[in-house]
Amino acid sequence: MSLARSAFSLSAALCGYLLLAFAGSAAAGATDELLRLVPDDVGFCVIVQDLREHNERVAGSPLAKALRKSPLSKVPELQQLEALDQLFQKQFDMDLAKFRDDVLGDAIVFAYRPGPPGKQQEEQGLLLLRARDAKVLEKLVNKFNEGELQSGKLKELKEGEYQGQKYVRRVKPSGEDVYAIRGETLLLGTREEIFREALKRLGEDRKAATALQRALRDTGPGKPLASVWINPRAFDAELQHNLESSEGGEAAALRNFIRYWKAIDGVVLSLALDSDLYVNLSIQARTEDLPAAARKLIKAASQPTDLPGKLPEDALYACWASAA
């Protein structure tokens, strides 16, 4: 009897552990699934992931409990948030907590492709979202469209098609945007060009990781909540354009800057949580292409150090840099 009880407890614990591990990997998978849809030549990409899990962790922390009891809990912003919550319930039949957990909780990606030099108005934006519940997502989008049609912010909804894949064009008085829902994934583009590229990638079976996926693999300690990826290659043309139109000291400085810039493959700034809060800045560069002075600096900085281990346990904040 005792053996059976122990076996049951062990199985329950194992199931719990597996469920937790599966939930964590599912969230990471959701982010990766969205990242592979982002075209390689975007300039910026903002990623928010595991919002649900991070929220649970932060809300249960002693700091959050202390804040709830402090005068900060009575600031007008929070009252406004309560009003917004009521409106949200009225308009979409769900409260903000459900919206946060079921719609925004897994992963959100916003990618931006700048326009060519001198044609900045040709910029393109792409919003990708992975919801926990496909039905909730679809209902929310439909209700949102209904509301905008009634208010006149939206003139009509039209059907679009690209390589046999159907999508929706939202015609507004000042232009249009396009979107498609595929299961739990929402794709929204400010222009058809970038949207179609994402739609095409969705149908492809890509195995190799994109530059963006590689850049976000190792950005520093902690579990990332929000990250911004800057792709230097997207700005090369404008930098060259600026160099050609500058002269004198400015041109010399810009030329020198470009030598460093071209050796950089990506920059990631991320906010990560663990038992601590981390702000990580990661710069991925090809050291062999850097000027000699920078190579020397990096060589010195990449020596092993035990500095993080020497930080006091009760330090309020700490800042260090390392090269690898």
């Binding site: 300039g43 900045q120 934006g125 919003l127 945007d177 600026n242």
Partner: peptide
Amino acid sequence: AGLKPVTGSARRAVDLFMREV
């Protein structure tokens, strides 16, 4: 001066997000 294209684009990206999304 070198980062001007990046900072300018960042501003435009925020504007686009606030305007179009």
